[in-house]
């Protein structure tokens, strides 16, 4: 029996098991639009579940996409009962960290306290490469912990609108790296544990080993969940151009090396020129020809993937109404002859 893969995300949208969905790709290919679309479709298809869309991209676009302001705390999208959004702000998180350090260690008048009051910790930590990813990861851990403790809103599925490929790969590598690091630290701390504890100050009596073990257990849990295809999947977003495809292939290979499930590709900004009666200009035709060339290659390379072909719309896909209209094609697939008029309908809505 031949197994055919549908060219839409119907299975994922109606999935009852997925807890973590990552949406990623090269910069400017429509990751935010795609992640918003997936979230909206999932929230519509499963009204009894709660969904959270988190942006881990330092250059946040969720607020722009929905046309309303989101912050570092999850807030419901206006017009949707079961979809919330949040934007992790590394600089705000760093400031929080700095304030905590001030509260714990610094009193005015002592040297360290004065330094921390000036935001030194935030400045130093902010310059560490990969700190954005680390903070996003910490946010995920905090979120899991909160869910376990039954605090705040409980979300069944979390969708990540990720940063461009490099950042995302670093983010996804973090559980592995942290796990190895903690393993090594555990070996050393086993030998010097009591000494480390005494260094941190007997009065405060911080149990470094205990904290490390707790962190290690959390990291292991995340690692396990991220590599379970029933719980986690990655949706690649690209456009039908060489560099975008090249980066998508690199992303897929990397993800596979992390044992992450990846079986969906959204190809955005397609022109479908021959079916466009209104604007079938020469430039569109030749560009569509190029896009078709790469689409054929995608079909050849990713025959066991859900490859969803999405149209380039006349206007920006912003606001819940536009996103809802656009996102339906993720569930059903886009048929240029039938659905072509929506490209211009989107333009009319402001």
């Amino acid at each position: 029996m031949e197994y055919t893969v549908e060219s839409n995300l119907h299975d994922l949208i109606n999935s009852k098991t997925h807890k973590w969905i990552f949406v990623g790709g090269k910069g400017g290919v429509g990751k935010t639009t795609s992640s918003c679309s997936i979230s909206i479709q999932m929230a519509t298809a499963q009204p009894n579940k709660q969904f959270l869309l988190i942006s881990t991209d330092p250059a946040h676009n969720l607020s722009d996409a929905f046309g309303e302001k989101f912050g570092k705390d999850a807030r419901k999208v206006t017009g949707m009962d079961n979809l919330s959004c949040m934007e992790i702000d590394p600089s705000a998180a760093l400031k929080d960290m700095n304030d905590m350090a001030v509260a714990q260690n610094g009193s005015v008048g002592d040297g360290l306290g004065d330094l921390l009051q000036g935001g030194a910790l935030a400045d130093i930590t902010g310059s560490i490469p990969g700190i954005d990813e680390a903070l996003s990861f910490m946010e995920v851990m905090k979120h899991i912990k909160r869910q376990e403790e039954g605090e705040g809103e409980k979300y069944d599925t979390v969708i990540f609108d990720t940063a461009p490929t490099g950042h995302t790969l670093r983010f996804l590598q973090l559980p592995q790296t942290l796990s190895q690091l903690l393993e090594k630290f555990g070996d050393i701390a086993g030998k010097f544990g009591p000494m480390l504890n005494s260094f941190t100050g007997g009065a405060q009596n911080m149990d470094i080993m205990g904290k490390m073990n707790e962190l290690k257990a959390n990291v292991e849990k995340i690692k396990q969940q991220f590599t379970d295809p029933d719980l986690t999947t990655f949706v690649c977003v690209c456009i039908s151009e060489f560099l975008s495809l090249y980066e998508t292939e690199r992303l897929i290979q990397e993800l596979m090396s992390y044992d992450m499930d990846v079986n969906s590709i959204i190809v955005n900004q397609l022109l479908f020129a021959e079916d466009d009666s209104e604007h079938n200009c020469r430039r569109c035709q030749s560009r569509w020809k190029m896009q078709k060339k790469y689409l054929d290659q995608i079909d050849e390379l990713y025959e066991d993937f859900h490859v969803v072909k999405m149209p380039l719309c006349a206007g920006e896909i912003r606001g819940l109404t536009n996103l809802k209209m656009f996102s339906q094609f993720l569930n059903t697939g886009y048929a240029p002859k039938v659905d072509g008029k929506i490209i211009y309908e989107l333009e009319e809505q402001k």
């Binding site: 090249y246 290979q253 054929d296 290659q297 390379l301």
Partner: peptide, 17 residues
Amino acid sequence: SAQDEYARWTKLNRQIL
């Protein structure tokens, strides 16, 4: 050429990896 024959190039790349 990777751009002219992307699928073939990528398949070779996978085999190389």
